[in-house]
Write a protein that binds this DNA or RNA. Structure first.
Lengths: 329, 329
DNA sequence: GAAACTATTGTGAGCGCTAACAAGATGTGA
DNA sequence: TCACATCTTGTTAGCGCTCACAATAGTTTC
């Protein structure tokens, strides 16, 4: 591999001048710059990241700590993060968590510290992730996706509470009075936030908020709960914590002869690409995960490069109406 | 950050001895080792990756070049890759492709070369990816997932042709004689391989192989084709290139009053977690993507560390039967 | 026309680590 | 006992780069 020195020899300048060209320093004459650039092209020179990192004490790498990477939300957030990071000249390193817990998070963070990442984006949507991160007291900026952040850690989230509220308010506007919620696990921030939004909307409307069932995000849990519900359905509408559980629920209702939306309306959350092809097509709440990811990196780079303090990013979701909702009979 | 030297001072040895301890060199007395380890713990010493990389000329990083990262298959392959790589002490860097093409691949590869990765796993399931990679003639080992590899590039794939064959042979065994195929795009390796397997099975059985329709992997394309098919259905069974298209197809059939499996049997491909909750639950071909990812890293590390040559990995898929298939009426 | 600036280029040191070699300590057999 | 091997530790150089500073050339100001 050619070095700065080799380029310098060919261009007839010092290694430092080559370094200036490579780093876009202002005080280089255009004649010199051209000579150097020609030499760089001729040799196929590439700056050695390790040597550069050694002296700058920056790795130009951002670590992404993720669980549930095969889920629609985290995967797309990762895409946004990657795009913004690469555009800004950063590398993106990942560590996937198989099970979520203090130790697994700590292991992954250690891995990133070994790599000397310049910042960490955390894509672990559990309620106590933020706490664990604060305890670890990391020497680099951290953005926790799915939380509002704290004094030490930046947050970036879709306003799920608001999304849930919008969905439920729509059902109320359609005339529904008994609206249940199939929530995700309460120890997931998404699960509890969406449940809160559901409750907020019902309370504001003076409606009962006692029909709450807990799933685990999977289609299987939606199916199981759907079978139980179908046996003695009291609600005319159900707000479901994510699209996958809604899929399972629809399946269970279909088997039990419960008609959607005639007997019961169903609203999901996420708007994954398949949601429009469920039976029936699912009304749901759309979240722009890529945007969320991009904004994480914006905030992170401000912390890394401009020394900015922690920030709190909020992205607003949007209700998408399809055939699974209708006014009650 | 403490350096090797700092640890050496506290332990009362030379920096080189500390280096030996850190790198598990054999010839260090246990007394010395203990002193050094105590000093390391006391200071919270961490080896500086940049300095190490500079002298070893290894970055301990594997690049993963991926498109379609929000899809079930690539996402789970990535998980397998990450697990195996981290277990082996490697970092995993990612670059996601927004659109697939020579230039995008070349950009991402350049990004990895800037980072001096030790190897690249390519998760871009297009037919001409392999060609592009060969042309780039990379100075590090490359494993192309979804291809059989070539003289210069290792391959790792699920035996999709065989998976398709198994699925279609099952339909034939059930008594189906007109079996159509809704394929993915033919310029995707997965698309053409699965179509080949479908054709193989039909030809071997002396059945017609002229009912081939092309989708684009999305539920939407499955839906569109489903609507067309429903109008004048001649097949009694359909083998669909992936589960998402099958979902759209099922939706279209439901709308058109075509009963699955009474009027037509449907088999998908992938076995994504939701497939069992479609209406009806989908028979499909299961692929172990994580295993595939892990084996990619095994092969890659053999190339990097043992100087092994290119290899070709094949993982066998498995047919999962659910309610969407039945003997013809 | 000398002093004071600015723009451009070069020199030397050192980031933290590992590899190669050197040297001391310990043990072994004749 | 000495010559030789073996185990353990230390010394030195250098990986490729950027930073701080020095030096030169060109320009302006009074």
């Amino acid at each position: 591999m050619p070095r700065l020195e080799d380029v310098a020899d060919i261009a007839g300048v010092s290694h430092q001048t080559v370094s200036r060209v490579v780093n876009n320093h202002p005080n280089v004459s255009s004649a010199t710059r051209e000579k150097v650039e020609a030499a760089i092209a001729q040799l196929g020179y590439r700056r050695n990241t390790a040597a550069r990192s050694l002296v700058t004490r920056r790795s130009q790498t951002i670590g992404v700590l993720a669980s549930e990477l095969s889920q629609y939300g985290p995967a797309n957030t990762l895409l946004g993060v990657e795009q913004a990071a690469r555009d800004a000249g950063y590398f993106v390193s990942i560590a996937a968590l198989r099970e979520v817990g203090r130790e697994a998070i700590s292991d992954a963070v250690n891995h990133f510290m070994d790599q000397a990442v310049d910042g960490i984006v955390v894509l672990v949507p559990h309620a106590d992730t933020l706490l664990t991160l604060e305890e670890l007291n990391l020497p680099v900026p951290v953005v926790a996706v799915g939380s509002a952040g704290s004094g030490a850690v930046s947050g970036a989230m879709v306003d799920q509470r608001r999304g849930a509220r919008i969905a439920v308010e729509h059902l109320i506007a359609q005339g529904h009075r008994r609206i249940g919620h199939l929530s995700g696990p309460p120890d997931w921030t998404d699960g509890s936030e969406r449940a809160e939004g559901w409750r907020d909307a019902l309370r504001d409307a003076g409606l009962p908020d006692n029909l709450l069932l807990e799933g685990d995000w999977s289609a299987g849990s939606g199916y199981g709960i759907g079978r139980t519900l179908a046996a003695g359905l009291t609600a005319t509408a159900l707000f479901v914590g994510n699209d996958q559980m809604a899929l399972g629920l629809l399946r269970a209702f279909a088997e039990a002869g419960v008609k959607v939306p005639d007997d019961v309306s169903v609203v999901g959350f996420d708007d994954q690409p398949e949601a429009g092809y469920f039976t029936p097509p699912l009304s749901t709440v759309r979240q722009d995960f890529e945007e969320l990811g991009r904004r994480c990196i914006d905030a992170m780079l401000k912390e890394i490069e401009a020394g900015a303090g922690v920030s709190s990013i909020v992205v607003t979701p949007e209700l998408v109406l399809r055939a699974s909702t209708a006014p009650p009979a």
